[in-house]
Simulated assay, not measured.
Amino acid sequence: MDSDRARGVLLGLACGDALGRPVEFSSATQIEAKHGQLTEMVGYGAWNQPAGTITDDTEQALCIVRSIAEQQGFDPADIAERFVAWYDSGPFDIGRMTMRSLSRLKHGDEWDEAGQHVWEQSREGQNAGNGSVMRCPPLTIPYANDWEQLVEVSRQSSRITHADPRCTYGCAILNLTVAGLLDDADTPLQDALDYVGTDAPDELLTALRPLARHESPDTLETSGYVVHSLQTALHDGLFAESADEAIVTAVNRGGDTDTIGAIAGAVAGARFGATQLPDRWLSAIDESDELEALAGELVEVA
């Protein structure tokens, strides 16, 4: 496996997350009025944090990565415990379904029960958020060459907090696409869609098939709905001409900027490699060195 591309998955995710953090919830028009085009790590704004601060996207991804490195493989119960410890630390940003699921885990649910219970108790429109797809790309590195296992661990990772099939299969399709990019595949998204076939929800397949044909939808939404987030982030991650263009484009669309930026960043990082991410971004993120080291450990696990 190309170690530069593997490092790109983790560091690209963090760059998109940190660049998008200060403008989360802003519209594209509001971002343009304040920043022109946001291309630099800036401080404060949403969540009132210093420049380069990561959010729950990267923090949960780190829980997954640290677990895999220490356990030498995917252990969903261990990851769930790490999520709960992170939840108990008082993060400034946490999604509603994640919070409800982790609360249930803390009070006795098993790793494969909490997310299911929360999903069953949530109405349509509040039951398929992007909180699991934003953190899942690191799973690709140790399982890139075993697609059957990659689909299984991707879906199980999602189920800890997000059990809706649009979320579980969203994680699987995203990670299969990233795996294809790590292997320099010509048609990574189409290969991913072919692999999951009709098992994945129609709504997800309908949104992503045009991208696999390299067609841009008339409208790209930036809400926290998992189908919107994946369509927009995969579009920008796969269609851009450079890693920084993918992330900047995704973030400047507005909306759920940190998560869409994180997903697009992971995809672009797998395409172009860590060396193509701007040094000025990486130096602003305190966790960059740990992410780089952990990427190497995940390659060793693979």
Rank of each mutant, 00 (worst) to 15 (best):
Q49C: 09
I64G: 03
D78Q: 14
A77Q: 15
W47L: 12
D75G: 01
C63R: 03
A80C: 13
A51V: 05
T58A: 01
I54M: 08
T58L: 00
R82G: 08
E70G: 05
Q49G: 06
A77P: 12
Q49M: 12
E81I: 13
D78H: 13
I79M: 14
A51L: 06
D56R: 08
S67I: 02
T53S: 10
V84Y: 07
S67D: 06
I64C: 11
E81S: 15
Q72R: 02
G52N: 02
A85S: 13
V65Y: 00
A85T: 14
E70V: 06
Q71L: 09
Q49W: 08
A77E: 15
C63A: 13
G73N: 09
L62S: 09
G52H: 03
E81N: 15
D75P: 03
Q72H: 04
D78I: 10
E59T: 02
A51R: 07
A61Q: 05
Q60P: 09
I68V: 13
W47P: 05
I68A: 02
P76M: 14
Y87P: 10
V84K: 07
E59Y: 03
I54V: 15
D75I: 01
D78N: 13
Y87S: 13
F74P: 00
V65H: 00
V84N: 08
W86V: 04
Q49T: 12
D57F: 05
P50N: 03
A61C: 11
Q60N: 13
D56K: 07
Q49E: 09
P50W: 04
E59F: 01
W47D: 06
P76Y: 14
S67A: 13
Q72D: 00
I68H: 01
F83S: 04
R66M: 12
F83Y: 15
L62A: 10
E70S: 12
S67Q: 06
W86I: 06
R82F: 10
I54L: 09
Y87M: 15
C63I: 07
W86K: 07
D56G: 09
F74Y: 06
E59S: 07
W47Q: 09
T53W: 01
A51F: 06
T53Y: 01
D56Q: 10
A69C: 08
R82N: 11
A85H: 12
D57E: 09
P76S: 13
V84L: 11
A61D: 08
T53E: 03
I79A: 14
W86C: 07
Q60D: 07
T55L: 04
Q71G: 05
G52K: 01
R66A: 11
P50V: 02
S67M: 03
I79Y: 13
P50K: 03
F74I: 00
I68L: 07
D78G: 09
D78W: 11
G52I: 02
